[in-house]
Write a protein that binds this DNA or RNA. Sequence first.
DNA 1: GACGTTGTAACACTAATTGTTACGACATCC
DNA 2: GGATGTCGTAACAATTAGTGTTACAACGTC
Lengths: 150, 150
Amino acid sequence: MSANSRLTIAAHALAWISLYQRRGHGVATSEQIAASANTNPVVIRRLLGELRRAGLVESRRGAGAGWSLARDLESMTLLDVYEAVEPGPLFALHRATPDQNCVVGHGIQPAMRTIYEGIEETLRRELARVTLEDVLRDVLAAPRQGADQE
Amino acid sequence: MSANSRLTIAAHALAWISLYQRRGHGVATSEQIAASANTNPVVIRRLLGELRRAGLVESRRGAGAGWSLARDLESMTLLDVYEAVEPGPLFALHRATPDQNCVVGHGIQPAMRTIYEGIEETLRRELARVTLEDVLRDVLAAPRQGADQE
DNA sequence: GACGTTGTAACACTAATTGTTACGACATCC
DNA sequence: GGATGTCGTAACAATTAGTGTTACAACGTC
């Protein structure tokens, strides 16, 4: 399972924007967020673009532009972010359709599809239980040693 | 999330071997299973090799050789298969470590790690609730139209 | 009009999955 | 004891997704 870091980076960006705003600054730029996440600004812009399409953030262009939250962190769950950022299903069926003249080949896909749907529903419920406010709280609860900037 | 079909194909192979044995045949060959799953025998041998390492199936070499179940389908769960076949975690953290001088960059990884561990634990519990016997029952319950061979 | 930022295209690099060929290892059967 | 059939595994190609990077047009503020 080639796990990706999209959900992690998206949560990082949202937490960063929120904390930046709470500290009285204006909008956040992709360059600032990228510096914190140690990646490229374009990666951040791409991800935040998907979050914008999902209604989680807003962007302004022009000089002094950047990103801001469209809703309160309390009202966003990891499921919202997950759905905005992870398109496909968790498990795939066969790439080539199995032999329909075989009992197993014929029945395996509906069987697995039903099972996978149940599992993904459970995953969604679990993701929906965690708000981004929870994430930010956990982030701030990490034991800090020394430096403390944004 | 580049979902793969490893869990699906492994379940397919186990169901096929079991049904083949229940119908009074001997061991199953990778070629037969591959024909049912519409893939290449080497793909099946690779996957079944991982299931053998996990103690789910046995293989015999030589003429008239092939694969058989090492345990009852009732005693195997999708979690057993998943752990045998899917190495990595569901979600990845950052590829490059985030800026440790930033509050968010410093706290995000432990926060997400804890959250992800809880979610994966839920996923495991869900996978453990489904036995391969359940899968085979669902497979056989699929509405059949016409042909009925193995 | 200058400037700074988003939005997005284009491309390279890496890694994982899948499919394929090839062939040695091994056990059974004649 | 040799022929045969299957596993075990290496090697490689093709495909795909994720990630990083450069480049530049679009846009809004000053």
